[in-house]
Write a protein that binds this DNA or RNA. Structure first.
Length: 425
RNA sequence: GGAGAGAUGGCAGAGUGGUCUAUUGCACCGGCUUGCUAAGCCGGAGUGGGGUUUUCCUCACCGCAGGUUCGAAUCCUGUUCUCUCCGCCA
């Protein structure tokens, strides 16, 4: 969410930003409603002040007649104040509704463009796509043959888009998680296992829409809880309403959670196998920091994502996401797209991670602040998030890139300490 | 799951419906005094919003959310967390 004052003082920039991000906005109405809200607010406060003044004077009044009159006056002032306040609340809600539709401002260097066509490849990983001298299988062919991936079982117990992982693939899954946690632990991240459910207002604070036809998340009936789509939600929400000491930042967290996504409206684009599923495990990075630290930390998160996929020996490219493809909260976003030899006709790049700098967009909604010693007041922190591994897609990348002619899969050395073998299958 | 107790400023800890401002102490900042790195005295100091524009004024905030009242830290309801005890369980 953008700051109200900032919007009013930078109408043209905000309007231009909405245009570049393909978001409709009505700032004219915003300005007009804000004007009315301000007037009502001033009136409400004045009535309130008078009522307070009057209430204080009553304590000293001994004469019953005077006292009764003052009580009646107080009653009326309070009623006037309530009426004015009601209008303020109503206008405030209108403003907030508009404010919530506005996306974050974009980084000046983020590629301009209304969709992913404008995304810019900025780097490649250490490893090049392999030349295979045998017919390439996709991960589902590899996995089904060994009893590693069972979508039919998932459908039987749960529904379409759910699956069981089995056999040695479970070991690979756990090994990848351990690799990520160990790697992040050495880079000052605090490992965390988070709740898989969160309250709807936390989801909203992070920038998800927990309700409505567009929603990407599952809700639990008769509660205000949702299944999280990512640990970003709980990690970001962990400090909602809190104030950090400036010197305790940056705070780096690494969270392990299950992630649940309805993939509503994605049916037509539904992809084969583990690529687009309703539940997966993710190791997520999240950072709270000072405003002047966030650009550098964003590069750091991107670097870590690269290191992790280099350790898996998987080829990938890094994409600087165009303004129109950023999503609401992001100021800038990098995606890692891994080479998936089994995708499409001859292999395709598939998104495996993304890292966003959300600046103060989430912290303003969640009211996460920091305080500097010797300075008055507090400021909103900046937040960043990045995928270490989304296990579903990381598994695709490892299986398909390291498959052997006999259907077994080579395990890269970085995983071997956790897996205790150099191949599976 | 049941019963009870509690939550007040950076910390400790008073405050059971109205005295102009939430008492006091510790810690903190400034000044004064004093022959010691100490003590004493005086003053200041929280967060957020609005107004004013450099000086202030004002509103809200006593776990959180509501309610009663002219007036709530105080009374009522709900809720979260902590502690004690009981029950249950992996």
């Amino acid at each position: 969410m953008l700051d109200r004052k900032y919007i009013l003082q930078n109408l043209d920039a905000v309007r231009q930003n909405c245009l570049e991000r393909g978001v409709k906005c009505d700032l004219t109405q915003f300005v007009e409603v804000e004007q009315r809200r301000k007037e009502a607010d001033t009136a409400a406060q004045e009535f309130n002040r008078l009522a307070n003044e009057n209430a204080k004077s009553i304590g000293g009044l001994k004469d019953p007649q005077q006292r009764a009159e003052a009580v009646e006056a107080g009653r009326q002032l309070r009623a006037q104040k309530d009426a004015a306040q009601k209008l303020v609340d109503q206008l405030d809600a209108e403003l907030l509704a508009i404010q919530r539709t506005l996306p974050n401002m974009a980084h000046p260097n983020a590629p301009r463009g209304v969709d992913d066509q404008a995304n810019l490849e900025v780097a490649r990983g250490k490893y090049q796509p392999r030349q295979f001298d045998f017919p390439v299988k996709d991960h589902l062919q590899l996995g089904s043959a060994k009893g590693w991936i069972d979508f039919e079982g998932g459908a039987r117990t749960t529904g379409q888009g759910f699956y069981f992982l089995g056999g040695e693939l479970v070991l690979l899954d756990l090994a990848i998680q351990q690799l990520a946690v160990e790697h992040l632990l050495q880079r000052s991240f605090v490992p965390t296992i988070t709740p898989d459910l969160a309250r709807a207002d936390i989801l909203e604070g992070i920038g998800f829409m927990p309700r409505g036809p567009e929603t990407q998340v599952y809700s639990v009936e008769n509660t205000d809880l949702c299944l999280v789509g990512t640990a970003e939600i709980t990690l970001g929400g962990l400090y909602a309403g809190q104030t950090f000491e400036a010197e305790s930042l940056p705070l780096r967290l690494c969270g392990i959670s299950h992630c649940y996504r309805t993939e509503a409206g994605a049916a037509g684009r539904a992809s084969r196998g583990l690529y687009r599923v309703h539940q997966f495990t993710k190791v997520e990075m999240f950072v709270f920091c000072l405003p002047d630290q966030s650009d550098a930390l964003h590069e750091e998160l991107r670097q870590i994502e690269c290191e992790l996929f280099d350790l898996l020996e998987v080829p990938y490219r890094v994409v600087d996401t165009a303004t129109g493809d950023l999503g609401g909260p992001a100021y800038r976003k990098y995606d890692l797209e891994a080479w998936m030899p089994g995708r499409g006709e001859h292999g395709e790049w598939g998104e495996v991670t993304s890292t966003s700098n959300c600046t103060d967009y989430q912290s303003r909604r969640l009211n996460v602040r920091y305080k500097e010693k010797e300075k008055k007041g507090t400021q909103f922190v900046h937040t960043l998030n990045g995928t270490a591994f989304a296990l579903s897609r990381a598994l695709i990348a490892v299986l398909e890139n390291h498959q052997q002619a006999d259907g077994s899969v080579r395990i890269p050395p970085a995983l071997q300490p956790y897996l205790r073998r150099d191949r599976i299958g």
